Computed example of a mutant assay.
Amino acid sequence: MSIQILQYEFLGPIPLDEWGPPMEKLVYLILSRDKDRFNIIYAGECEKTEEKSYFIQHSQFQCWIKQSGSEKSLYLAILPMFESSNIQRQNVLTRINQRYKPPCNTDTVESKPDYIVRSSKSEKITCACCGAEMKSEKILEKSTLYRCTNCGISDTRLDS
Rank of each mutant, 00 (worst) to 15 (best):
E45Q: 13
K66H: 13
E50V: 13
K112M: 13
Y146T: 00
F61E: 06
I78Y: 02
I125N: 01
T108L: 11
S119Y: 05
L93G: 04
I125L: 07
C104I: 00
Y42V: 04
I14A: 09
Y75A: 05
R157E: 00
I40G: 01
E71L: 09
L79A: 07
N39L: 01
C46H: 07
Q60W: 00
R33H: 02
T49C: 09
G69E: 00
Y54I: 11
S70K: 01
I78L: 06
L140K: 06
V92L: 04
Y100W: 09
W19S: 11
C130I: 04
T126L: 13
L16W: 01
V27N: 11
L79R: 09
Q98I: 10
M134T: 07
C104D: 01
E9F: 05
T106L: 15
A43M: 07
L74E: 05
C151L: 01
D159F: 02
S32E: 07
G152S: 05
K52P: 05
K121V: 00
C129D: 14
E133S: 11
N86Y: 08
L11V: 14
Q98C: 08
L158D: 09
L11F: 11
R89C: 04
A132Q: 15
S73I: 01
Q57S: 09
P102I: 06
D114K: 12
L145Y: 02
Q4D: 14
I96C: 08
E71P: 05
R89Y: 04
D155K: 13
M23R: 15
K52L: 13
L26W: 03
G12S: 09
Y146R: 00
Q57R: 14
G20A: 15
